[in-house]
Computed example of a mutant assay.
Amino acid sequence: MKKNASIEEIFESENLDVNAIVVSGIPERHIEAVKAIAKLMVATDYHNPNFKPDFTDYDESKYSPYVEMGSPSGVGFSSHYCDRWFTYSVVGSRLVSESSEVAKRIFDNHEDLYKAFMVYDREVK
């Protein structure tokens, strides 16, 4: 495992093509966000190869990046720090890491994917 692997290298490590992700059945405006979160799930597995979060264990720490949202264009979108989450967390198990260092590394290496999945400039009618 390379610490700073690209998303393409991460997919290749599982004999997958990052460009082969197909999403259908949802509005066009959400497709890139769903592709981004799919890529982040694979990246999170890659960077946490020996970590299986146990959400029944209240003593086990789980980490995810905590980001500050800026404007809808993404200006000011940045990782302030990583937060520790407990079992009662609203953070899904697919994107948690075993340490704050790993969570921050994933964010730093794939900030564009977090932005694609989290920043939504919703059009109003």
Rank of each mutant, 00 (worst) to 15 (best):
E60F: 00
K52T: 15
E60W: 05
C82K: 02
D59R: 10
D83F: 09
D59T: 11
S71V: 14
G92K: 01
N50R: 07
P72R: 13
F86Y: 13
E60K: 08
Y63S: 07
D57H: 08
G70C: 09
K62F: 02
Y88C: 07
K52F: 07
R84S: 14
S93P: 01
Y58F: 15
Y81W: 11
H80S: 13
Y88D: 15
P53E: 10
E68T: 10
N50M: 09
T56N: 13
F51G: 00
S71I: 14
N50G: 05
H47F: 05
S79E: 11
T56A: 14
G70N: 04
G92A: 04
M69A: 10
C82H: 02
G76L: 05
P65I: 10
S78Q: 12
S89F: 04
K52Q: 14
Y66F: 12
V67M: 12
D59H: 09
S64M: 03
Y81L: 10
G92L: 01
T56C: 07
Y88V: 05
D59G: 15
S61G: 15
V91K: 06
K62P: 00
H80K: 12
P65D: 11
S79L: 12
S78L: 06
T87R: 04
Y88G: 14
F77E: 05
V91S: 03
C82G: 04
F77M: 04
F51T: 00
V91R: 06
V67R: 04
G92I: 00
G70D: 08
Y66Q: 06
W85K: 01
S78P: 00
Y46R: 00
S71W: 09
P49S: 06
P49Y: 03
R84W: 08
S78D: 10
G70S: 08
D54K: 03
D59E: 15
S71R: 13
C82Q: 06
G70V: 10
P49M: 08
S71L: 11
G76Q: 05
G92M: 02
K52Y: 10
H80R: 11
P53D: 05
S78W: 04
N48R: 01
Y81V: 12
P72H: 12
R84K: 14
S61H: 15
T87L: 04
F86H: 11
W85C: 00
P49I: 09
Y66S: 05
S64A: 14
D59Y: 10
S78E: 15
S61D: 14
Y88H: 11
D59Q: 13
P49D: 12
Y63K: 06
C82L: 04
F77H: 04
D59C: 08
Y58L: 06
V67L: 06
D59M: 09
H80D: 13
Y66D: 07
M69P: 06
M69S: 13
F86T: 08
F77P: 00
C82I: 01
T56V: 07
N50I: 03
K52H: 08
E60M: 15
C82V: 05
